[in-house]
Design a protein around this nucleic acid. Structure first.
Length: 453
RNA sequence: GCGGUCAUCGUCUAGUGGCUAAGACAUCGGUUUGUGGUACCGAGAAUUUGGGUUCGAUUCCCAGUGACCGCCCCA
């Protein structure tokens, strides 16, 4: 006994020495995580609801590669943005191409739209996409280096009714996922022309109040003056409160667009507010921008998702002038919120039948029987590797199945199988060829095959 | 990128500058031969990594790594 233990310890000690030259680190990379089976009901729910609603609203699915030429992102998102400046996973391929892991989905979708000539499709072209995106930033709760987004883009329609519909579907998905208490925040940051004018106006104003701003904001005045409006410092928000607002300085077209959008939103009974300080981190936005926030409890400073118009992006990228609008939400954040408000995850179907086998002959036959049950839509669990009936029943019990099928030596020879009711303990022997029908009947009678969602 | 807090079995927790680092849950096995839930018994399983101080460190110090918090920013 002692020698056994010692031997183990020696092996343990020896292990690291063996692999000294290249230590194997059994750990996910910083800011990345596994999505474990126990979490899958939530993910499944998000997938199902998103896919269903995307279809309901006429979106077609598009999947694009995770890796693209890196300038696809730098040019669309904007050279000066944080995402591009310090958060991109960029590398050179063996072929010498400068590529990057996508930090968001819209750029790739636009590329695909142009490359595949989707402008010939009837407008609007509504695109649904989902998958991982990558940003090399400092991880925290709700912020990951790899996270999943569910994304909607619509190309070729400049009518603000599409803005309203986009906000509607965003709201609808989050609500359907069980997050009832949400708030939509909307704003208009104008088009290229009026935004530029507004920025000048704002900078002039801020310049006059410079002494009252925090250090960060003094810096922001140059890099991103709109951000000053968002600062949490008391003194800055006092300055921001009196600052000129973008909505008051829109050009005629942008003002009408925004006004019409608000009329549509009023019609929809959505819980929205106009947040004149709402600014988004990507350069390509024009006119409408919006975010979706949970309002269940204060404290959370993370939006669940956001989006906006990018009317000039396709043209800027070299495509035909095509107005567009998009929205994305972060799956991890939405799931965290679902858990917080105790929203119901998807109920993954559990087996109602367990197949136990006993003896060599039965073991051989059980594989075929299992397959037979599966083909007939009877979800069955098993533990073929286990020998004793006792341990198999224990598993069956733990799984909470309705029936256990027992196939032993005797039954194998007779062409029968024992059906044991796990609630009552009663069991009957039935012939193999009647088994499937019998089980189907029993499950139906017990009304156990009802799943929600 | 900057500042801070933390780090013990799979999970949740105890504990200590010095004998085999404790418990619960979970896992696996057993309580005779072909029958589950309870009970009883047993097994495996951890001091994040690397240095340093020390006769001796899981404990003290430094660094790395990671998680989390506050910035920056964002989904």
């Amino acid at each position: 006994m002692d020698s056994k233990k010692n031997a183990k310890k020696i092996i343990k000690r020896a292990k690291p020495e063996k692999s000294k030259e290249e230590p194997l680190v059994l750990q996910t990379l910083r800011g990345m995580k596994d999505i474990l089976p126990s979490d899958q009901p939530y993910w499944e729910q998000v997938r199902r609801i998103s896919e269903r609603l995307s279809r309901d609203y006429g979106f077609l699915r598009l999947d694009t590669p995770i890796v693209e030429f890196s300038n696809l992102f730098t040019r669309s998102i904007g050279e000066g943005t944080d995402i591009v400046e310090k958060e991109m996973y960029t590398f050179i391929t063996r072929g010498g191409d400068k590529v990057a892991l996508r930090p968001e989905l819209t750029a790739g979708n636009c590329r695909s739209f142009i490359q595949n000539g989707m402008n010939v499709l009837s407008k609007p072209v509504k695109i649904f996409s989902t998958g991982p995106v990558y940003r090399y930033d400092r991880p925290q709760e709700g912020r990951y280096r790899e996270h999943f987004q569910v994304n909607f883009d619509a190309f070729g329609e400049q009518d603000p009714i599409l803005d309203a519909q986009m906000i509607q579907i965003a709201h609808r998905i989050i609500q359907t996922l069980g997050i009832k208490s949400v708030q939509m925040q909307v704003n208009s940051i104008g088009c290229q022309v009026c935004r530029k004018d507004y920025k000048e106006l704002l900078v002039n104003y801020l310049e006059s109040k410079k002494s009252k701003l925090c250090q960060d904001c003094k810096r922001r005045m140059d890099t991103n003056p709109l951000r000053v409006l968002d600062c949490k410092e008391d003194k800055c928000s006092q300055v921001a409160a009196l600052a000129p607002q973008s909505v008051d300085h829109l050009c005629e077209e942008c003002r009408t667009h925004f006004k019409t959008l608000l009329e549509y939103l009023d019609e929809l009974d959505l819980p929205y507010i106009i947040n004149p300080h709402l600014v988004r981190g990507l350069d390509y936005y024009t006119k409408t921008v919006f975010e979706i926030w949970s309002s269940a409890e204060e404290g959370k400073k993370l939006s669940l998702g956001g989006g906006g118009r990018y009317d000039k992006l396709i043209k800027m990228m070299g495509g035909e002038d095509t107005p567009a609008i998009g929205f994305a939400f972060g799956v991890e954040r939405v799931i965290a919120e679902m858990k917080r408000v105790q929203a119901k995850p998807y109920k993954i179907p559990r087996p109602k039948v367990f197949l136990a086998q006993l003896g060599n002959l039965a073991k051989k036959k059980s594989l075929r029987l299992f397959s037979e049950l599966e083909k007939n839509g009877i979800l069955t669990a098993e533990s073929f590797g286990r020998g004793s009936l006792k341990s198999q029943l224990r598993i069956a019990n733990k799984l909470g199945v309705e029936f256990t099928l027992i196939l032993g030596q005797k039954e194998s020879l007779d062409g029968t199988v024992i059906v044991k009711n796990m609630t009552t303990g009663a069991q009957e022997t039935v012939s193999m060829d009647k088994l499937v029908d019998l089980i189907k009947k029993k499950l139906k009678a017990d009304n156990v095959v009802v799943y929600h969602n």
